[in-house]
Computed example of a mutant assay.
Amino acid sequence: MEISVQKDDLSDGSISKLLESHLQEMYQHSPPSSVHALPPQELKNSKITFWGARINGVLVGCGALKEISPTLGEIKSMKTNRTFLRKGIARKILEKILEEAKSRKYREVKLETGSSDVFAPAVSLYRQYDFEKCGPFSNYKEDIYSLFFSKRL
């Protein structure tokens, strides 16, 4: 099973569809005020670059990098299709995003994820890549439903 991770211009709608299911899941685990997934209208923001992971041309996961400043990026929209969980998809996407952040000369990347048990696999992955807990950043506020992580590059 070869996983290909490439930049995606969102033109075929597959990432939007995957993120729609992601948004629905977020509302199952967090109150609306604590859901920080990108709304559909923000997906094509020029400060956000998306990657799609595909196996045999089929989208199996996605992730994005948002520029907060010339030295800081935020990882957004990390999502794996349920059928492909625990197969290394998120790891490949995260590696591609970190590679891009380094090439942009960011000094740091940050992210927000949920705090409930359903997010434990994501938290474990980020810790494996030396992300450390930090406080809220950008427009985020302290929230019991959110965890914030940072990684120096």
Rank of each mutant, 00 (worst) to 15 (best):
L125S: 05
I55G: 08
K92D: 04
G88V: 08
A120R: 09
L19Q: 10
Q28S: 13
L10Q: 03
D130G: 06
S115Y: 07
P32T: 06
R91Y: 06
L147H: 09
Q6R: 13
F148P: 07
H29M: 02
K102Y: 01
L23V: 04
L147M: 12
E142H: 14
I89W: 00
V58D: 11
Q6N: 14
Q41R: 13
S16T: 09
S16A: 14
G63T: 06
G61Y: 01
Y126K: 07
Y27F: 15
F119C: 04
L72I: 15
L111M: 15
F84L: 12
E142R: 12
I48A: 03
K141A: 11
S14M: 11
P136L: 08
A120C: 04
S21V: 10
K151T: 03
I89E: 01
T71K: 11
T80I: 15
I144C: 12
G88L: 01
S150H: 15
S103T: 12
F50H: 10
I15A: 03
S33L: 12
A64V: 11
E108A: 07
L153S: 06
A53C: 11
L43N: 08
P32Q: 03
E132S: 12
R107I: 03
K92Y: 01
L111A: 08
S34V: 12
S21P: 03
V123E: 08
E2T: 14
E132Q: 15
R54G: 13
L23G: 06
L72R: 09
K17R: 08
Q28I: 11
K47V: 04
N56V: 05
A120S: 10
I89T: 14
M78G: 04
G61M: 00
A64S: 14
P136K: 10
Y145E: 02
I15T: 06
A120H: 07
A120E: 09
K47Y: 08
E112I: 06
I144N: 09
F131S: 02
D117A: 09
K76A: 05
I97N: 01
I89N: 01
S77D: 05
W51V: 00
F149K: 02
V60N: 00
N81K: 08
A101R: 01
V60A: 01
N139S: 15
E112Y: 07
G52C: 11
V5P: 08
K105G: 13
T113I: 05
R104A: 02
S69H: 08
P31Y: 05
L18V: 09
R127Y: 00
L38C: 14
M1A: 09
L10G: 04
A90F: 00
S115E: 04
T83R: 09
F84E: 06
